[in-house]
């Protein structure tokens, strides 16, 4: 995807989720990144990692779109955390 959009969506949220290692945070970014947003004109997500943290910034056209989008990403993050937790020893 091209990064040509302007950030003109009014409703925003920034999340930081701490992981144990920087590598785990990078894994989360790689896992989350591929999925396209269904309505890019209404909602944006950007994933990055900073040290041990997964950083996610959301932008939505209204609070409902933002809430729905954020909760779906959080569900995915929960699966990633559970997987890492269960299978890294």
């Amino acid at each position: 995807m091209k990064g040509t959009r302007q950030s003109d969506l009014a409703y925003t949220l920034y999340l930081e989720v701490p992981f144990k290692t920087a590598k785990q945070a990078e894994t989360a970014v790689k896992v989350l990144k591929p999925d396209p947003i269904l309505k890019p004109q209404d909602f944006h997500v950007e994933y990055s990692s900073k040290a041990h943290n997964l950083c996610v910034s959301f932008e939505g056209v209204d609070d409902r779109v933002l809430r729905v989008g954020v909760s779906s990403v959080i569900e995915s993050i929960k699966t990633i955390i559970e997987t890492i937790d269960e299978f890294s020893h």
């Binding site: 894994t27 995915s76 699966t79 997987t83």
Partner: peptide, 15 residues
């Protein structure tokens, strides 16, 4: 489908 692929990607990177 999506809920399963999230796990698949995570495992693929970890292992």
């Amino acid at each position: 489908l999506h809920s399963v692929v999230i796990l698949a990607r995570t495992l693929s990177i970890m292992w």
